[in-house]
Write a protein that binds this DNA or RNA. Structure first.
Length: 896
RNA sequence: GGGCGCAUAGCUCAGCUGGGAGAGCACUUGCCUUACAAGCAAGGGGUCAUAGGUUCAAGUCCUAUUGCGCCCACCA
């Protein structure tokens, strides 16, 4: 038999050891040959850019709670871990490191050498991340750990690309894309963040070629004028009708451009005349296409002006803007400047202002791919929790435009397109061709670009299970059951996983998407590096233990909503762990060391004889099992956790342990053994219910219970049927508890010492009294009462008493010298007021025939019962109040 | 321009299908009672943002308003 627990709860002493035990035991490993039903979650792969933050801790805690719960509930639970190469983010980090540590740029280092550095980075940080997962207690299957750039994922990415290309869903085209000058790459629409910024509209005159006044255009980006090829006006716009077909002159540039009619200009906006710059604006590009206009670029990839900008060539776009406007103004072409709020697109990684640019890139056609992804949610094959995210998802997919997937980066999956250097033929293939299929030349080079990092994570649910091979894992574990992720990456990732799975697997990637919010700091601000308000989960674990952190993260949430991280809440969770620790210590230290440990083993039969308190706590646990399980099924983890918290603290610790102490310290050996068995049984059920939330402490305590022949992680989730239902015991126990509370209240109000033993008189009908007699020892023990008198009427009740009323029972506590009748009167008045209020409310309700005729009979009856009960109580309180008042009057008189 | 969320005790937040307002922290009072002061016991504190509506019954459903926050949107 194990020794008792150490005196203080010190999670650091056992968390790492427990984790090692789990991992060594193989409990995390899902068995492809298992008879059990599979349950699968794939971990959203953390970026290898750094270390885990509080958002990961939240994300992982939810997944681990679900995984551990399902594992206990009899499923073959697979939580598949992995990491993401995070193309652009990692490349920026590695380049920064190069600059800082070696003072060189990635270009100076060269592609091949740079990739070596990136792989070294991956080894370091990838390893750190998996270590952190272990600290959190993640019960994931490390034998199946994956990386988005491992061999299998690479194969999957190539296969995906080639198949889409062959179906005509991937194409290379010259289009307007989002360009991040500072990252030096194109971005997808999802990677651009829009923000309203203060800006200016510049009203600039384009004089007519015929010497006429021409027209005025408004622009927020005057530096793009060098790329202007036309001015468009709405054909219905009377102001410009005469100018259509004529030309105007670009001021100072002295280039003639036509005025064209196009439905695009909105007559209400600006001046109604729009400068057309096809190379730097997607709308203008379309207008340009419609009118067969050229599309000259004037801004380079590094956001400097090119030769088209004449004397401004080489200037940064904003420097150019400033000089150009000054020159226009000096020459009299600047009509006015208007302050405006302008939506600006920024790179989601570096927040540089994105420049729309004409560029040749690879794109995925979205129209066809989006259809099954939309249908999936509409038909309910994929469901969001909470459901409101379905609308957001659908809206985004319905408006989706083609996905730009090529990136001008090195770290990532290189596009499997090959070019013949002799004839220029392009081949898209799974392997580099030896010779050009067109001209047989062997001078073949691969496309320089890599793929959007989300292109590989889109395949995550099936690439990690072996696709494109038809593996047993893939057959068994796909589609996965739940995807757990933050609402901030629904567009980046969730949407793309859904359409990718339908395209390649012809099925949904997961059945549920559990969406959680962001972790914010105590002031509600988003945790971020730049604000420096981030809290490191590892430091928290070090100080408070992983269980406290996990409990805070899993019970402080409601699906889809953000969560504030406060030390107060963390401490209260740690205190809860401490409470459980001490209660368990109490139980273990009271066990019979020489006893038969099979009586304490999981699943051991309950004793034949059960006391009222035993039946009560078993019924309460049973109820908690039912409710917590129902909550878990509905993804209401926080409610489930809260129920278990209340069961452990408010019922098991506060009442049951206190109720059984006298039995435990008594001489009846058989009864002592019965109590111990119930204590252990109850504790085991509670440890099981709590284990998904607080795995470490529950496993540690479990291991100290005699008869624990297997790890808690493998134990069965509690079943309500295994526990006796006993609502009658619960009702009776609750009456006893109310009486005890009432006595304690009287004691406190009278300012009697807690140690002072009280005498109590209980007045009620005989039947009620007989019921109470069954709880007499409890009332004595917990009310600290020496003597209980049962009476049918009040004739023998002395005058100097304080009173309480619980249901049909009147409680009198004689406290001769301690009674302050004034205070007693105030107390009774308060009680009387409360009861009168209730009676009044119920009376009105029951007098209303609309209520009595339309409300369900059970509801009406319940209200009647309540009214009777309160009326009875009020009568007693009023009677007593009258007596106390008389007493006060007498005192006043005698004072006179 | 479109959409969404939040508004409940001093603070942070629960409250799932409508049927007597909850938790944690903070506060007051009394307790180092042999599991636990990271604790025990007893308390105080809320016209559930505002205005309408549906209903026998609304914190809960509907509409509008106000305030805060978020997302989407091709920067004339």
């Amino acid at each position: 038999m194990d020794k008792n627990l150490p005196k203080t709860y010190a999670p650091k002493e056992f968390e790492d050891r427990i984790y090692q035990t789990w991992e060594d035991s193989g409990a995390f490993h899902a068995d492809v040959n298992s008879e059990k039903t599979p349950y699968t979650i794939v971990m959203p792969p953390p970026n290898i850019t750094g270390q885990l933050h509080m958002g990961h801790a939240l994300d992982h805690t939810i997944q681990d709670v679900l995984t551990r719960w399902k594992r206990m509930a009899g499923f073959d639970a697979l939580w598949l871990p992995g990491t993401d190469h995070a193309s652009i983010a990692t490349e920026v980090r590695v380049a920064d490191k190069l600059r800082v540590e070696e003072g060189i740029t990635k270009e100076e280092l060269g592609r091949e050498e740079f990739l070596k550095r990136a792989w070294a980075w991956k080894e370091t940080y990838g390893g750190k991340i998996t270590e952190q997962c272990r600290k959190l207690g993640d019960s994931c299957d490390w034998k199946r750990e994956r990386f988005t750039m491992d061999e299998g994922c690479n194969r999957a990415v190539t296969e995906f690309f080639v198949q889409l290309y062959e179906k005509g869903m991937i194409y290379k085209g010259n289009r307007i894309i989002n360009w991040c000058p500072s990252c030096g790459t194109s971005l997808s629409d999802a990677e651009v963040e829009h923000d309203d910024k203060k800006g200016k509209y510049y009203y600039i005159r384009y004089p007519g070629s015929d010497g006429g006044p021409g027209l005025v255009v408004a622009t927020s980006r005057p530096e793009t004028m060098f790329g202007d090829v036309a001015v468009a006006v709405n054909p219905d716009d009377a102001r410009y009708r005469d100018l259509i077909g004529k030309t105007v002159i670009l001021p100072l540039i002295d280039r003639e451009i036509p005025v064209i009619a196009d439905p695009y200009p909105d007559m209400e906006k600006g001046t109604g005349a729009v400068k057309i710059t096809p190379a730097h604006d997607p709308n203008d590009f379309e207008v340009g296409c419609r009118h067969d206009l050229p599309s000259p670029s004037c801004i380079e990839e590094d956001a400097t002006m090119n030769d088209l900008a004449g004397k401004y060539s080489g200037l940064d776009r904003y420097a150019c803007r400033k000089a150009w406007i000054a020159d226009l103004d000096a020459a009299g072409f600047l009509e006015k400047i208007e302050e405006m709020v302008i939506p600006i697109g920024e790179c989601y990684r570096c927040h540089d202002v994105v420049e729309p640019m004409l560029s040749e890139q690879w794109f995925v056609h979205m129209d066809e791919l989006a259809k099954p992804a939309i249908a999936a949610v509409e038909k309910g094959e994929v469901r969001f929790v909470p459901a409101r995210f379905e609308k957001i998802y659908l809206h985004w997919l319905e408006e989706i435009r083609d996905w730009c997937i090529s990136r001008q980066l090195w770290w990532g999956h290189r596009i499997p397109a090959y070019y013949c250097q002799d004839c220029g033929e392009m081949t898209v293939a799974r392997k580099q061709p030896d010779v050009c299929p067109a001209c047989r030349s062997s001078q073949i080079v691969q496309d320089e670009d890599v793929l959007d990092t989300w292109f590989s994570s889109a395949l995550w649910t099936f690439s990690t299970l072996g696709w494109p091979e038809r593996t047993e894992d893939l057959a068994r574990y796909h589609p996965t059951d739940v995807l757990v992720t933050g609402y901030d990456i629904i567009f980046f990732w969730v949407v793309r996983m859904v359409f990718s799975a339908y395209a390649m697997m012809d099925e949904e990637p997961f059945r549920y998407v559990y969406v959680h919010g962001l972790v914010r700091d105590g002031d509600g601000r988003k945790m971020s590096k730049s604000l420096g308000n981030g809290v490191d989960p590892l430091e928290i674990i070090d100080q408070y233990g992983a269980d406290a952190l996990r409990f805070m993260l899993s019970t402080g949430i409601s699906p889809g909503n953000d969560l504030r991280f406060t030390m107060d809440r963390l401490e209260s969770c740690r205190n809860f762990a401490n409470k459980l620790w001490n209660a368990s210590r109490f139980v273990i230290m009271n066990l019979n060391e020489g006893g038969d440990s099979t009586l304490y083993a999981p699943g051991a039969p309950l004793p034949d004889e059960l006391t009222l308190a035993d039946r009560w706590i078993l019924d309460r646990i049973r109820q908690a099992v039912i409710e917590a399980t129902a909550n878990m099924e509905k993804f209401e983890l926080a409610l489930a956790g809260q129920k278990v918290y209340e069961l452990i603290w408010n019922e098991y610790c506060d009442w049951y342990i206190e109720l059984v102490k006298t039995r435990l310290y008594g001489d009846d050996e058989a009864d002592k053994e019965r109590v111990r068995r119930i204590l252990v049984r109850g504790l085991r059920e509670m440890l099981s219910l709590l284990h998904p939330f607080m795995p470490f402490i529950t496993e540690e305590i479990w291991s100290h219970l005699p008869g624990s022949d297997m790890l808690l992680i493998r134990a069965a989730w509690p079943k309500a049927e295994a526990l006796p239902a006993d609502p009658a015991a619960t009702r009776q126990m609750e009456l006893a508890m109310d009486i005890i509370r009432s006595i304690r209240n009287i004691r406190a109000e009278a300012e009697a010492q807690p140690s002072q033993k009280l005498r109590v008189l209980l007045v009620a009908e005989t039947a009620v009294l007989n019921n109470i007699r069954l709880c007499e020892t409890h009332i004595r023990d917990l009310g600290n009462v020496v003597d209980i008198h049962y009476l049918n009427d009040k004739t023998e009740v002395p005058e100097a008493v304080m009173t309480g009323v619980v249901d049909q029972v009147e409680i009198f506590v004689p406290l001769d010298d301690l009674i302050d009748f004034k205070a007693e009167a105030v107390r009774l008045e308060k009680e009387s007021g409360r009861l009168s209020g209730e009676i009044n409310r119920l009376g009105i309700k029951l007098a209303n025939t609309a209520f009595t005729s339309k409300a369900p009979a059970a509801v009406v009856q319940a209200e009647r019962d309540k009214l009777d009960k309160y009326q009875e109580m009020l009568d007693k309180v009023a009677e007593r109040l009258l007596l106390v008042r008389q007493k006060l009057e007498n005192e006043t008189r005698s004072d006179i």
